[in-house]
Amino acid sequence: MLPRDPGQTNLAGMSHDHHHDHDNDLDPMAARVRALETILTEKGLIDPAAIDAIVETYETKVGPRNGARVVAKAWADADYADWLRRDATAAIASLGFSGRQGEHMQAVFNTPDTHNLVVCTLCSCYPWSVLGLPPVWYKAPPYRSRAVIDPRGVLEEFGLTLPPDTKIRVWDSTAELRYLVVPMRPEGTEGWDETRLAELVSRDSMIGTALARQAEAA
């Protein structure tokens, strides 16, 4: 929850650096956001309660464990994997993870020949419903520009060196279409249930900057 209750307001963007005994400072950006919220609320364009609910959802309920469940199910259930390949939006929604923006999802499957990597060169489009909010590096200019130009070099910076004959496909997300990488299922996981499999699926493996964890590491 965004701290807003009396007694918690010191967390809400106030600076402690230079206050006097009896007044408060509101950080300029915090004041600006409050100003927009006030204006939009007064005009009836937003509901402040909805704002709190959205923050709570993204801070506590949405995260890469959603995507890990999707990937684990695809590993364990061939029919589901097939559905995910054909209609990722519906297959993912069937697990209760729907995009708030009505965006379409496409699942891209890693194979021994091809590794997939997701970027948004436009801004920071990201499959929020399955991965939560993007990490800082995903939104930063170096990744956004270099993932397309030199994907192999970028992956090496993430500590992932692929065999030279593995092709790398880069998927550029848009506001309407977002990608989820389905990493390859690690060896030695035969017979594992989905819960156990999901523990091998890291956020980065679903962006494509990492592989799934190895069975012994779990």
């Binding site: 963007g13 939009l40 364009l45 993204y58 995260g63 980065d204």
Partner: peptide, 29 residues
């Protein structure tokens, strides 16, 4: 994910105003 720390990273929101700004856009859209 499932108790395993991934590589160190900053949280989604560095400060509360960022969460609020984020939510304003979602609500408007």
């Amino acid at each position: 994910v499932a108790g395993h720390p991934i590589e160190p990273d900053t949280p989604a929101f560095a400060e509360p105003w960022q969460a609020q700004a984020f939510a304003l856009v979602i609500a408007l859209a």
